[in-house]
Design a binder for these strands. Structure first.
Length: 274
DNA sequence: AGACGTACCTGACCGC
DNA sequence: TGCGGTCAGGTACGTC
């Protein structure tokens, strides 16, 4: 379930374990995830030290002292587990990092929609990073910039918000949640979200993401489960997965509807969202 | 260029 | 207990 808040929570979980540590050994247990792993993957990582772990959109970026950056995407089902000592790999543990203090970090991804790559230079040097839109919690995302990005787009606002070039890091859940909070119908043409509507939507996106990160970050210990798994936690959603339920905190009397847009489920309150 | 459908994978769940 | 169908939080790529 990794959208921006989950990836950020994973980052915050991994950072204190990995920052400053040398990768004593890195083993890929298969040659590919969604895509082939880069040439000499394990060798290029072995011996490198992790200077920092950053996040851009839903990507984790491990900056190494070799000058290379390890990029990791969790796809739909990726997760990390870690422990202070080696532990047996489970099914779908595809990449194993052994740190110089003996700790191990395992990357697990049953569906293998995730991927990893190595690159040098600034983030724009990687094709998947170079066209990403603004970070929603960064300084260059607000009503006017969102309105500009939506201008002339005929597609429904739901689809536009999933487009990582418009804003980076939203996924299917938080798009529904943001539109609910902003009172905007997911079917509305993206180009009609301008002015005050765009302001409201930008603010809703920030609120929803901040709350989700806070609920992750505030109880991070709970997300390192006894088995060491990181980053998955229960959020309470207003609309996602609540088809047929009463619209929360709203006297509209309506029920939450589920529709399909571009092949993916959307949840919304037709009374409250216009 | 923008918009759309499809492909990539496994597992969980439901009805029969 | 098993089987087939459906669905799942993402992204890249081909085609129009």
């Amino acid at each position: 379930m990794p959208e921006l808040p989950e990836v950020e929570t994973v980052r915050r979980g991994l950072l204190p374990k990995m920052q400053g540590r040398r990768l004593a050994r890195v083993v890929a247990r298969r040659p590919d995830l969604r895509f082939p792993l880069p040439y000499d993957f394990g060798q290029r990582l072995t011996g490198a030290s992790v200077k920092d772990i950053r996040r851009r959109a839903k990507y984790l970026l491990f900056d190494l002292d070799t000058g290379e950056t390890l990029m990791a995407h969790l796809g739909m089902s990726g997760s990390f587990r870690m422990a202070d000592a080696p532990f047996p790999p489970e099914k779908h543990d595809h990449v194993i990092f052994t740190l110089d203090d003996g700790a191990e970090v395992h990357f697990n991804d049953p569906r293998r929609f995730g991927f990893m790559d190595l690159f040098s230079g600034d983030d724009g040097a990687h094709a998947v990073l170079k066209d990403l839109g603004p970070e929603p919690l960064g300084g260059d995302f607000d009503g006017p910039t969102l309105a500009m990005a939506l201008k002339g787009r005929k597609t429904p606002i739901k689809a536009a918000l999933l487009d990582q070039r418009v804003v980076a890091g939203l996924g299917n859940i938080y798009v529904s949640e943001s539109l609910f909070r902003a009172g905007i119908s997911p079917r509305r043409g993206a180009h009609t979200v301008q002015g005050g509507r765009a302001e409201k939507l930008a603010a809703a996106v920030k609120d929803v993401l901040r709350a989700a990160i806070k609920s992750g970050g505030s109880s991070l210990r709970d997300h390192i489960r006894p088995d060491g798994e990181l980053g998955y936690f229960q959020h309470s959603f207003d609309v996602y997965g609540r088809a047929g339920e009463k619209c929360r905190d709203c006297d509209c009397g309506g029920a939450i509807q589920q529709i399909v847009q571009a092949g993916r489920s959307t949840f919304f309150c037709p009374h409250r969202q216009r």
